[in-house]
Amino acid sequence: MKQLDRTELSLLVALPALILAAMVLPSWIVNYVQVSLGMGLVALGVMIQMRAGLVSFGQGLYFCIGGYAAGLAGKYLGISDLFALLLIGILAALIIATTLGFLLRRYREIFYAMLSLAVSMILYGLLSSTEELGSTDGFNLPVPTYLGMAPSGEAARMTLFIITAAVVVASAIALNRLLRSSLGYVNEAIRENELRVEYLGASAHNAVHVTYVIAAVVSSMGGVLWALSLGHVDPEMTNWTTSGSFVFVCILAGTGSIVAPLIGTFLLEILRVYAVEISPNTWQMILGTVMLLTIIFLPKGLWSLLAKSSTAKRFDPEADANTQPGE
């Protein structure tokens, strides 16, 4: 481990803070935190693709693969160990994403969005019509055990929370490394100008493929953790509207920092719970309006308000005028 940057330090500080908070705060809030940590990992998967200029409207696919892989392993193999389930989810995502990646890496822009949506809907169709897996109702997961230990009651709740938080923090630090790595830089370059990337001697296809697989793995971990904390999976996990909500989080929070989508997911989850209660029929309208306003007025998301130095440059009037044609 070389030196940590500020984001990584704050993530490390956040871990004990989260655990401490979980001990004091009422359990319903802790529940939301835990659920949104799982979903936050999927949003991170969407985000690292966005950094390469790719918008996935089908990230729910891997959210669902993670959840169902864990569920199936519990249902048919009787596995309830969290780490084993996590590993099974990762393996499933790894195999499927590596295969699908050969198809998806050829696509950019709206075609990438459409194709990722299409493959996620294949799974949706498949699961919705599979009666053995409860069709659209889905099925329940086992209560997780931990390397042979089976805590109960409050201890079980806390254990799952601590492990979830630890996995998310570790993943976020790894992804932060990814963004600063050569691959991260190449991805930025692909977003800006793929032609130049090829002319510098790198394969944009390979970079996109690797990024796609990493995003899938992270999302599947989110799926396993989410499913275990809810104790249930259903095909809605891979419906395109679910994938859309992950995209929404990234647009709203911005892709400037790895922390942004995590916080964004949590705030959205809390907001959703209240909004659905107060006014169930205008909730999506509020979401849509906020999203429109964000796109128009804060193209780099809410996070850009915090990171002022990078926003100052955004308002240089020459910046847009000089954008070359044919990009």
């Binding site: 200029g53 918008v55 409207f57 822009e109 709206i110 969005a113 859309g244 995209v247 929404f248 647009i251 029929n281 205008t282 909730w283 999506q284 309208m285 979401l287 849509g288 309006t289 999203m291 429109l292 796109i295």
Partner: peptide, 17 residues
């Protein structure tokens, strides 16, 4: 074009409600 997909997605959410 991708941005426009996001814009129309927002509009879709609004239309639903």
């Amino acid at each position: 074009e991708v941005l426009m997909v996001l814009v129309t997605y927002a509009l879709f959410l609004i239309l639903e409600d």
